[in-house]
Design a protein around this nucleic acid. Structure first.
Length: 420
RNA sequence: GUGAACGUAGCUCAGGUGGUAGAGCACUGGGUUGUGGCCCCAGCGGUCGCGGGUUCAAGUCCCGUCGUUCACCCCA
């Protein structure tokens, strides 16, 4: 053996035994998305770097230190998609979707790439399911988007989640608030850590991300964004809450909830799971009324969410989910002697042509060994062919659950595949 | 990027104060010549993450490195 190569740091293989649960979770979510009128879109795995630097924001951690950026052979700067919203917004603009009936409701299921230090529930490549609704400023659609996410969690049996809700305000009220917060931070500078003082300059809202106890205490007295909302934003926020109540979705208003993308305006939200440890966010999102314009489109509002497939599965398994059975063949065909191998191969081909799931041995196993495989495969029947059957053109059919066995004509055995 | 713990067969792990490796599961064969799931027997399988160092001798001690896990940070 040569030098062993393993999967890159922070990545992992999704093995055959992991597939059923995963595919089921994704399928359940997609079904919910479609019921709410969202249609699937797939965008490229990499985009021009400036889509993210402009769209997500230069001050974000994602853009500053987590992107997989490379130069292609044509000298263009490309970046592996670190988040799902900017690419979908780009596609909306590129395909002139503003000419369609609004809102345009889209969903995706794609891998995301971020150069972070791996941890429980955090990988350098992970999958997100997400929806985006473009073109409507109605608070009802904010509530619908949150409702879609809540319904998706319900559909996969994920319970005990906590929804946190906040409003970031619009460009205008944020400007007013930012300066109020900035002057507060300047006055109280002594109470904050160095990093917070740095944040105060770049993007004062990010000081709310700080986990240092002293900073948190000092922030308790800070002006609240929700108290600085303009009348329009305040009304919007109020209406979103009403619509959540109407849908029976409980939430906690959290004025410190500031998410990692700069494009959010007004509504932001996040579902958290108590069983996930430090990486408690299962999914979240918000409204982004300035994003489409920022990446070169007309001013079109939007709202959406992203949710992590790995986090859903992790939360599910930690709250005691049951494993899903893998697919089993209907029949495993056993050759009891060397001469029967040709016949067994032909039988398998005929039955598979009729649509039956069939398996057989390619390892020169003994008859006993093949029977063992048959049992292991989960097949309903073992079809046994030996010298006797060869001579009579028959097949012995053994029901692997009951142990009942009978010898039937070859054609009858083949037909088993058709009815199964 | 920072801190802590860990890294022995495919998997889960044993290997007191150093003396050149074991178990269970899995896999293959067999248990009277054509039969599974239980049981019994045997076999296959390890440069003890990698590289240095200390020592007569290191899986076992020291340093470095890579990786994993947990936490910080941030997020899905």
């Amino acid at each position: 053996m040569g030098e062993a190569i393993s999967a890159p740091k922070g990545t992992y293989d999704i093995l055959p035994e992991d597939q059923p649960l995963r595919r089921w979770v994704v399928a359940q979510a997609e079904m919910v998305f479609q019921h709410y009128g969202y249609r699937r879109i797939d965008t490229p795995t990499f985009e021009e770097t400036k889509l993210f630097s402009r769209g997500v924001g230069e001050s974000t951690d994602i853009v500053r230190k987590e992107m997989y950026t490379f130069e292609d052979l044509g000298g263009r700067s490309m970046t592996l998609r670190p988040e799902g919203t900017a690419p979908v917004a780009r596609a909306y603009v590129e395909h002139g979707m503003h000419t369609l009936a609004q809102p345009v409701k889209l969903y995706y299921h794609s891998p995301m790439f971020r150069y972070e230090s791996p941890q429980s529930g955090r990988y350098r490549q992970h999958y997100q399911l997400g929806v985006e609704a473009f073109g409507s400023v109605a608070p009802e659609i904010d509530a619908e988007v949150i409702g879609v996410l809540a319904a998706s969690y319900r559909a996969v049996g994920l319970a005990g989640l906590e929804l946190r809700l906040n409003s970031m305000g619009c460009r205008d009220c944020r400007r007013v608030y930012s300066s109020a917060l900035r002057s507060f931070l300047a006055e109280q500078a002594a109470s904050f850590c160095g990093e917070c003082r740095e944040r105060a300059r770049l993007n004062p809202l990010r000081t709310f991300d700080c986990k240092v106890q002293a900073c948190r205490e000092a922030l308790a007295a800070a002006p609240r964004l929700t108290d600085h909302l303009c009348p329009e934003c305040s009304k919007h926020h109020q209406r979103v809450k009403e619509c959540l109540d109407m849908q029976g979705i409980p939430f906690i208003t959290d004025h410190t909830l500031v998410r990692g993308m700069d494009y959010y305006t007004r509504t932001t939200f996040e579902f958290q799971s108590p069983v996930l440890g430090a990486q408690s966010g299962v999914g979240g999102g918000g409204r982004y009324d300035d994003l489409v314009e920022a990446i070169g489109g007309r001013p079109v509002p939007g709202v959406g969410f992203g949710t992590g497939v790995e986090r859903i599965i992790l939360a599910l398994s930690r709250s005691g989910g049951e494993a899903l059975a893998p697919m089993s063949p209907v029949a495993y065909i056993v050759a009891m002697c060397e001469e029967a191998r040709t016949e067994v191969f032909a039988l398998a081909h005929e039955m598979r042509s009729l649509g039956a799931a069939i398996d057989l041995d390619y390892m020169q196993r003994s008859g006993k060994g093949q029977m063992k495989q048959a049992g292991r495969s989960g097949a309903r029947y073992a079809l046994i062919v030996g010298p006797q059957e060869l001579a009579e053109r028959t097949v012995t059919v053994r029901d692997l659950a009951s142990g009942d066995e009978r010898t039937v004509k070859r054609a009858q055995a083949v037909a088993l595949g058709a009815e199964a």
